[in-house]
Design a protein around this nucleic acid. Structure first.
Lengths: 250, 250
DNA sequence: GTGCGGCCTGACGTCGCGTCAGGGTCAAGC
DNA sequence: GCTTGACCCTGACGCGACGTCAGGCCGCAC
């Protein structure tokens, strides 16, 4: 294979392969008489390793050192890559959770502290992760146009969403006042409504994720305070109902 | 707060904040009489948004455009960030799965095709080069290549791991031959041994992940073929045993 | 008043490529 | 055999997002 084909296969540019050749990171194992680079299967293997380590944030020089280390066999690379990927997975999960928490906080008018918001960034030191940009904006005009429209919707929607949320909270409080147990059908149905409320207005929220939110309502004092202001004991009541509903679904 | 404190809080360098000031991405809302930058809470909020979008791979110029768009409210940013983070989560999970698959493949002497390995990297057209690649270095060639490398790296550990794996497979085959059901204690115990074999030699493999591997044995024809060569029906047998064991643990 | 750490503004360096410019190569079709 | 257009080559410069000095000003403790 020559450069163009390898580039297309691996999803990189020809220039990138030139660069890797120049710096000695990946030299094609042959050249034609006219000087064309010719890549063999083993070169593709190496390229694959390079791209994995690159994606994991290693500088190219370090990638070369790792791959040229004669005392490291392929299995060791796989183990290391696996470990790093799982670290990254955890970190991304933490960030997703943080964003969800902030959405909930906004919905309830709670303020998070700056330290708390930066928390998820702080531990992020050992390796740099680079994310690929999936989203590409098209024409600026069309984009601005759509933005303006969605913004118009957003205002109305926001009020509706908030009203819905408050309505739900009121019905939770009523159920509590009526003495309906937190794991009763009535309470679980309200929890399910809450879950679908989130799904419709914010993000897809499967039962398991919803259960996580439920625990947060009990554990985070600001969310607890929000519910307690409506009715004493409501935080734990909602939390229990949400978990019971999640168990019923699973 | 002045630069150093903000930098420490957010986990960036002072130079980065200087840079963001210079390019107009984040100007501190005040200066002391001596010219010291003074950051207000609102500046921290903005910095937080900047870092999130940066982490998601946006160039700084685009980040500025997003944040300065007057028609985009904070909730919209949160929704976008949430969506992008979940995309990333999925992608990372796919990469983890790919690495695990490759480890398993190595353990069994199966080789993956180049385009398969590059699959996770991009949105490349799978149809385009597949035929050509297969034609040029078809299965026998690539297989020989893989064998050569495995042989070159063969160490005592590797031989031991492989022997252990083959021993397990033989005992699975014996259980199948004896007519022990795939969800019998005998089969599940073997599955558990298999899980711990992976944990000792490759990576930590909780039951849930192990169940995923079990499904792969049945769904991926090369893994299926590997087991079927040992005994007919063994692929599905092992897959079922692994899933039953995972269910028993959970 | 004298350190000493923190802050300031240039200004140049680095990494991983993108992007021409100027020119050779190759297989196809006429 | 000749043209054509896609593909390849080697410089060489540019760029984004900072890192890293250099030279000098604050501010507070001792």
């Amino acid at each position: 294979m020559n450069v163009g084909e390898v580039a297309a296969l691996a999803g990189v540019t020809v220039r990138t392969l030139h660069h890797y050749d120049r710096i000695g990171l990946l030299r094609p194992s042959g050249r034609t008489s006219a000087g064309y680079r010719r890549y063999a299967p083993a070169d593709l293997d190496r390229l694959h390793q390079v791209l994995l380590y690159r994606e994991l944030g290693f500088p190219l020089e370090e990638v070369a050192a790792l791959l040229d280390d004669p005392s490291a066999d392929p299995a060791e690379h796989l183990r290391r890559q696996h470990r790093l990927l799982r670290d990254r997975l955890e970190r991304t999960q933490a960030m997703v959770a943080a964003v969800e928490k902030e959405m909930e906080a906004r919905d309830m008018g709670i303020d998070l502290t700056p330290e708390e918001r930066f928390e998820v960034f702080g531990e992020h030191d050992p390796e740099r992760y680079e994310a690929e940009v999936r989203e590409r904006w098209g024409e600026t005009d069309a984009h601005a146009e759509s933005k303006r429209r969605t913004a118009a919707y957003a205002k109305e929607d926001w009020l509706r969403i908030k009203a819905e949320g408050e309505d739900l909270e009121a019905r939770f409080a009523a159920a509590l006042a009526d003495g309906a147990p937190a794991d009763s059908e009535r309470a679980m149905d309200l929890a399910e409504e809450h879950r679908q409320h989130i799904g419709r207005n914010f993000y897809d929220c499967p039962p398991e994720m919803h259960a996580g939110l439920g625990r947060m309502y009990v554990e985070d004092e600001r969310f607890t305070a929000h519910y307690e202001r409506i009715a004493p004991g409501l935080a734990r009541y909602v939390g229990t109902a949400v978990e019971a509903n999640a168990a019923r679904q699973g």
